[in-house]
């Protein structure tokens, strides 16, 4: 029985040791609720080591859809939100959950579609017209359907095209309820159209027959904002550390770091923080 006892004891000790080990408590950190696009495009992998090196503060990013990221922050589970859905962000601040939204950077959405282009939209510059054609041709299109920033943008575009999704949706409209990457995987395997943010598209590898069919419309503008979670609402929020991160990301240095992130020579995000 000795061997077993020793084994059991070792197991217990190991478990206790692990449990007693507070994850990274020796290091200062903040938690940032952000979007899948910023994480999966690799932007944070580029930015955060620069910030950690400068300040010694670890930034822990939980990547979710914008809607979910804001909900996590509403519950007080993050110090900072970094998302891309301006109306939802303004609502978040108006409700008192966040203080002082700052604009950080932008990129743009692109309409992705199969090279065979069944709805004949390729090369167009008008995204609203393209949406109308997809609807008319009943060509398959994949929607995020997850209250993310990209999903909100897609819904706004249907509205601009004067198409009431509630009545118009049929088998051609595939509501996947998934993140940008999984939705792109789905579109890739069924050769469907999909609205995507350029950053995720550029870093996405499983493209299959998909390519960019519409880009460059002003209405495809995609603004990112950063907000400190209101310490008055959630007293445990790391006010100073969170604010320091926000101040850095909108500073010249942080903005330069964003501009410096490229994939295959192509810049993914364009800093546009206003001064002051």
């Amino acid at each position: 029985m000795n061997a077993v006892r020793r084994l059991l004891l070792a197991a217990l000790l190991a478990a206790a040791h692990f449990a007693a080990l507070p994850a990274g408590a020796q290091q200062k950190f903040i938690t940032v609720a952000s979007t899948t696009s910023t994480e999966q495009s690799g932007l944070f992998g580029h930015l955060l080591p620069i910030y950690a090196k400068k300040t010694g503060v670890q930034v822990r990013v939980v990547a979710l859809g914008t809607g979910q990221a804001l909900d996590v922050a509403r519950r007080g589970d993050a110090d900072v939100v970094f998302v891309h859905d301006k109306p939802a962000e303004e609502k978040f601040v108006a409700e008192g959950f966040g203080v002082a939204r700052r604009e950080v950077m932008y990129n743009d959405f692109v309409l992705i579609g199969p090279k065979s282009d069944p709805a004949q939209v390729a090369g167009g510059k008008d995204i609203v017209v393209a949406f109308g054609k997809i609807r008319a041709a009943q060509a398959p299109i994949v929607s995020r359907g997850d209250r993310s920033g990209t999903h909100s943008a897609e819904l706004r575009l249907w509205k601009m095209a004067g198409i009431g999704l509630a009545a118009a949706r049929g088998p051609w409209y595939r509501d996947t309820g998934s993140g940008m990457g999984p939705a792109l995987n789905t579109a890739s395997s069924m050769n469907a159209y999909i609205l995507a943010d350029r950053g995720t598209w550029l870093s996405f590898k499983n493209r299959g027959e998909l390519t960019i069919v519409v880009e460059g419309d002003q209405r495809l503008f995609n603004q990112y904002g950063v907000i400190l979670v209101n310490p008055a609402k959630h007293p445990h929020v790391k006010k100073e550390l969170g604010q320091a991160f926000i101040d850095w990301i909108v500073s010249d240095e942080g903005q330069r770091a964003i501009a410096g992130y490229k994939i295959g020579g192509e810049q993914l995000f364009f800093p546009n923080a206003k001064r002051g």
Binding site: F18, A19, P22, A23, T31, R60, V62, R75, G76, D77, H234, H236
Partner: peptide
């Protein structure tokens, strides 16, 4: 979650 009954422990998003 911070808004939940054990929120004050602050162990959400940790290995614990």
């Amino acid at each position: 979650s911070r808004a939940g009954p054990l929120g004050s422990m602050g162990i959400l998003f940790t290995p614990s």
